[in-house]
Simulated scan of single mutants.
Amino acid sequence: MDNRLLLYFTTLIDQGTFTNAAKKLHISQPSLSSAIKKLEENVGLTLIERNTRKISLTIEGEILYKEAKKLLNHFEQVHKEMTRLKKEGPLELKIGLIESVKFWLPKVIASYREVNPDVNIKLREVLGLKQVEIALQNYKIHLAITNQLFENDEIDTVPIYKENLVALLPKGHHLESAPTISIHDIKDDELIICQEGFQTRQDILNAFRKSGASPNIHFEIERFETACSLVEEGLGITIVPENYIKSNTQSAFSMKIISDANLSRTVYIACMKNRYLPPVIIQFIEETKKFFEQ
């Protein structure tokens, strides 16, 4: 399939009219119309409804448009990467992060930089499911370190470690001296929890559901940092990854294992399937896996 025809087709849909699309592509309207007809002949399908004044796609046209945008984007990124490699070499690594990686990621990066001292590393927080998917699909990041469970066949995940989820209670809480607690012990406390779209929220709600308890949700947050601050002010309790608070020794809250819930989460490296990954990306993935194997 001719990339040029796909470009003409997607530009027509994006621009909305043959006039605007032809202008954008710097070709004549008859040439654009001819190209669209040729594309339809090539695929053997009608792609555009021609009985309306407005550009409208058939069902087949919608499918081709969606896939063509992916193909063209991928082709453009590979072309850019090849051009950059010729001039500069493989010098960039873009990583999407969740908050709890702070306890180990600097160690991995330090080890990685010993072998790749010239790589420019860009770290970006990507927390919710949709945020991770969009960042990967749109080439904003090469890979994501995430606990999200994907139902997207285009994304590949490699589990790297498992971490416990623990409850944080404000100082002076009536369970402060308890060695462990249960879900039922905290079901009436004001709960600070992640927003919709976060896997940790789903894990916590599932634990309450299995225990036959209903959570008393009072705050919905995006970052664990915010949740911890609210707990320190005595505004409720929260449940966070144990690794997130490992380095926090001066906090005004107490950490408790939830003994009856088996609350934990798996952290993955996620990247797009069937996409070119420069050697520096593959090296980082291998360095991360080696860190946890050791």
Rank of each mutant, 00 (worst) to 15 (best):
M1I: 01
D2M: 08
R4Q: 10
L5A: 00
L5S: 10
L6S: 00
L6M: 03
L6F: 09
L7E: 11
Y8Q: 05
F9M: 05
I13M: 10
Q15K: 06
F18D: 04
A21F: 05
A22D: 07
P30T: 15
S33A: 15
A35E: 03
K37T: 10
L39Y: 00
E40F: 00
G44N: 07
I48K: 01
K54I: 12
K54N: 09
E62T: 13
L64E: 02
Y65V: 08
K66I: 11
E67F: 13
L71W: 13
L71A: 14
L72P: 03
E76S: 14
K80Y: 06
R84A: 02
L85A: 06
L85Q: 11
G89H: 05
G89F: 09
P90E: 15
E92N: 13
E92H: 13
I95L: 04
I95R: 02
G96Q: 05
E99T: 06
P106G: 02
I109Q: 07
S111E: 04
Y112P: 02
R113C: 02
E114C: 04
G128T: 15
G128N: 13
G128K: 15
K130E: 03
Q137L: 14
I141P: 06
H142L: 08
T146L: 11
L149C: 05
L149D: 05
N152K: 03
D153R: 14
I155F: 06
I160P: 00
N164I: 14
N164K: 15
V166W: 04
V166Q: 05
L168H: 10
P170L: 10
H173G: 01
L175T: 08
L175Q: 00
S177T: 15
I181D: 01
S182Y: 07
I183E: 06
H184Q: 14
D185R: 10
I186K: 08
K187Q: 14
K187T: 14
K187P: 02
I193W: 09
F198Y: 09
Q199W: 12
D203Y: 15
L205Q: 08
R209E: 06
K210H: 14
F219V: 05
I221S: 09
C228S: 14
C228R: 13
S229R: 12
E233N: 03
E233P: 06
I239V: 03
V240Q: 03
K246E: 11
K246M: 12
S247Q: 09
N248M: 13
Q250F: 13
S251K: 12
F253K: 04
S254H: 01
S254M: 03
S259Q: 08
D260H: 04
D260E: 00
D260A: 08
L263C: 06
S264R: 09
Y268C: 00
M272Y: 13
M272D: 07
F284W: 12
I285G: 00
T288N: 10
T288V: 15
K290L: 02
F291K: 10
Q294C: 07
Q294L: 04
